[in-house]
Design a protein around this nucleic acid. Structure first.
Lengths: 153, 153
DNA sequence: ATTATTCCTGGCAGAATCTACCAATATTGT
DNA sequence: ACAATATTGGTAGATTCTGCCAGGAATAAT
C-alpha cells in the first residue's frame, strides 16, 4: 500500500462509524461508483489498514459491568519474563487491551469482569500465576464517559 | 430484552470476531436457519446489546502511531466542572476513550495522535482550554501487546 | 392430563446486494 | 507530447437479504 488519499480516508471514517454499510451506500457517501469503492475497501483490507470488523457490544447489557485498569511491573526485564507475561496476556479473555508503557509501570491492561468478586478471582487465578511480576496496581472505573471507534484526522 | 440465551451469546461472540459475517454464515455457525438468526440479531441490535459495528483500523497504518494515557484530576467536583469536562471530551476527536475513575485520579483518557509534537499541541490547545482541571499526568505507550474486541464469558 | 397461549423455528420469494470483468478515462513519469 | 500505469464506471450473473407465513416446541393455566 503506497499511501492513503482523501477518498481512502473517507471510506475508513465511514466504516469506522458504520462497519456494516453496504458497498452501495458507502460508495455514495464517498462520491464513487460501487466498483472502485469496493476495490478500495478490499485494498485497504489486504494492506491491513482495515484490520477487520467487529460488533460493538454493550458491556453492561452483556453482563460485564466492571472495568478495571491494571498496571503491572515485572521484576526483571529478562526476555523470559517478558515473553512469559505477553503470551499469558494473549490467552486471558478478560484482558481486552494490553499496552507496553514508558515510565515505571511496564504494562497497562484493561480488564473486564462481571463483579468485584470475579475480579479478585481473576487476579488470583490468572495474574498471580504469571511468573516475574513485581507489582500490581488496580484502578476501578465507575463508568464510561466516551468511547469512540473513529480515529481522528 | 429479557435475557441472553446461549444462542444469543454465540451470535454476539461471532459478530465481535467478524462483524461483517453474512447472515447465512452466521446462522450456520450458531446452528440456526437464516431467518431466526436474523431476527435474533435484529433484537440484539434493538435492545442495544449490539450497539453498532465498526471497522477496526490499524492506527499506525493510518498514520497515528502515538498512544498516550492521560490521567486528569479536576479541582472541585462541582457539577459545572464535571459537565464542562465531559462535554469537552465528547467533542475532542483525539480522545478515543474516557473513563470516570475511582481513586484520586478522576478520569483516564486514551489519546491518539500522530507525533509527540502533536501531543503537545493537543494538550495546549484542547486540554488546557478546559476549565477546572487540577492536574494532568501523561503516560506514553510504546506499543500494543493485545487488543481484543471479544468480551469474555 | 389437557388445553391454550406464546414464542421460536424454518422455508419461501421478491428485492436488494455483491463482485468479477470490461472498456474508457484519468494520472503519472519521461 | 507520449507511453505506461492506475483508476474509474457500467453491466450482469450469482449471492444474499429479509418480511411473511405456517408448523412445532415449550410453558402455563385449568
Amino acid at each position: 500500500m503506497t499511501k492513503l488519499d482523501e477518498t481512502d480516508r473517507k471510506i475508513i471514517r465511514a466504516l469506522q462509524r458504520e462497519g456494516r454499510l453496504s458497498n452501495q451506500d458507502l460508495s455514495q457517501r464517498v462520491n464513487l461508483s460501487p466498483s472502485p469503492c469496493l476495490r478500495r475497501v478490499r485494498n485497504l483490507e489486504r494492506a491491513g489498514v482495515i484490520d477487520g470488523y467487529a460488533a460493538i457490544v454493550d458491556q453492561e447489557a452483556y453482563g460485564l459491568p466492571v472495568t478495571v485498569f491494571l498496571q503491572v511491573r515485572l521484576d526483571r526485564h529478562s526476555q523470559e519474563n517478558v515473553t512469559a507475561f505477553e503470551t499469558a496476556v494473549a490467552g486471558i479473555d478478560e484482558i481486552m487491551e494490553c499496552y507496553l508503557m514508558a515510565g515505571d509501570r511496564d504494562y497497562l491492561l484493561r480488564v473486564v469482569v462481571a463483579s468485584l468478586a470475579d475480579y479478585e478471582e481473576f487476579i488470583r487465578r490468572r495474574i498471580h500465576k504469571i511468573p516475574g511480576i513485581a507489582s500490581l496496581d488496580s484502578s476501578f472505573a465507575f463508568g464510561v464517559v466516551k468511547r469512540s471507534q473513529v480515529l481522528p484526522g
